[in-house]
Design a protein around this nucleic acid. Structure first.
Lengths: 222, 222
DNA sequence: CGTCCTACGATTGTATGCAATACCCAAGTC
DNA sequence: GACTTGGGTATTGCATACAATCGTAGGACG
């Protein structure tokens, strides 16, 4: 069994991701401690880590606040993902391994099975398998620092929720890009893998930007 | 006055950077607490943050160990710095501001004044002003996430200590590149700024690689 | 002599208590 | 009426105490 603070970290991160704690909201330590059934000590340690990873901001003597994301922030994140995911894909292609490729295949299979359903549950599955796909790729690249950095960039709330903005054709294309990436990596063609990844990230940005411009007041449902 | 855990964080980070706690060494909480004159609680919170930033690794029930760096790790860090510092330089050039440019100029002036001295103190000053220069540039780029990521990549021990590997000509060239970057940014030429930055990072890598290959057993004095 | 087991010491993990600080609101002043 | 000031409350910051866990040294057994 993992330590209490690690469990708290995982739970709080998930809740920040799924919107249980909306951006800007205050997170009182005692309340979190009561919810998770532990004391404030492990909660505080989890909050320190979430702070370091950008999930929330701990202000001295005021506590933790779920981070709010401006459109500029999100564009920056897409920029960084474009750089780092491409880098990871290129290096994964230069050292492909069976186990990682299998994990990526499996993620695609599961996503494909969920694709026909239009409900939120399908979106949930697709979002989930998407994370698994990318994680397997980061792992295969063998770049530890790149992996942890991408983890903190690609998993936060508005990235996961962006899947709700995809239409059926968009999801189909996203999945096709995943399949193409597997081919590129398996063949050891770094340039190919990198190019597909860059297109993949930019397609995600385009979906996001379109969703933002649809909402007239410039605010979006993240 | 900052909180105790923030002070502990800064102090421990500096000690990890200057070699007081060598790579691989175990850092008992109680000992750190005694050294800094606080209890274990703020120490633990500082350690969580240092862990998240890659300065050390906290193993459950075993404590904190200063991270050890393989040559592959360091090459990865230079790779990521090449990508992200270039990105930051390009965006700084697209939105130059007087105050940031002044800070960069000042860092160069101070480094230049210290340059004639060959002693370790001069190296210290140069290493210090180098950090200030880059920080000012990151700040100017307005990219918050890029800045925090670079902070955790560019400041760790072996990056700071790499300055000891530069010869006089190398330091001179490094400083010239800083001056050139200021010109490029001030003129708003993003491509120029990015190219100089990339060259700057790669020059640093070359110095590092040369230092490693000079030591026959593949270990280096970091 | 080597291996396994146990008990001890050292260190980390968590809970709790108290001190310090910030926020909120009401009363007072200009 | 707007602004300032004071106290009360809620929340965080830190220290301490105790529980849980790990590593190791020593001894028993094969």
């Amino acid at each position: 069994m993992a330590t209490a603070w690690e469990q708290a970290y995982v739970t709080l991160r998930r809740r920040l991701a799924d919107g249980t704690y909306p951006p800007g909201s205050h997170l009182p330590e005692e309340e979190l401690a009561a919810q998770l059934g532990v004391s404030r000590t492990p909660i505080r340690e989890a909050l320190r880590r979430l702070d370091a990873e950008g999930w929330l901001r701990v202000v001295p003597n005021q506590g933790a606040f779920a981070t709010e994301w401006s459109i500029a922030d999100i564009n920056e994140i897409f920029d960084l993902r474009a750089l780092l995911e491409t880098y990871a894909a290129e290096h994964a292609a230069s050292m492909p391994d069976r186990r990682g490729l299998d994990m990526m295949e499996e993620a695609c299979d599961r996503a494909e099975a969920a694709l026909p359903g239009d409900d939120l549950n399908a979106i949930e599955v697709i979002s989930d398998t998407n994370v698994n796909f990318h994680r397997a790729l980061w792992e295969m690249s063998g770049r530890a620092r790149c992996r942890t950095t991408l983890h903190s960039l690609a998993v936060p709330p508005m990235m996961l929720r962006n899947f709700r903005n995809f239409d059926a054709a968009g999801l189909r294309r996203s999945l096709d890009q995943h399949r193409e990436m597997i081919k590129a990596i398996a063949s050891g063609n770094a340039a190919w893998a990198g190019a597909v990844m860059r297109a993949h990230v930019e397609a995600g940005r385009a979906v996001f930007v379109a969703a933002v411009s649809r909402s007239r007041d410039g605010k979006w449902a993240m």
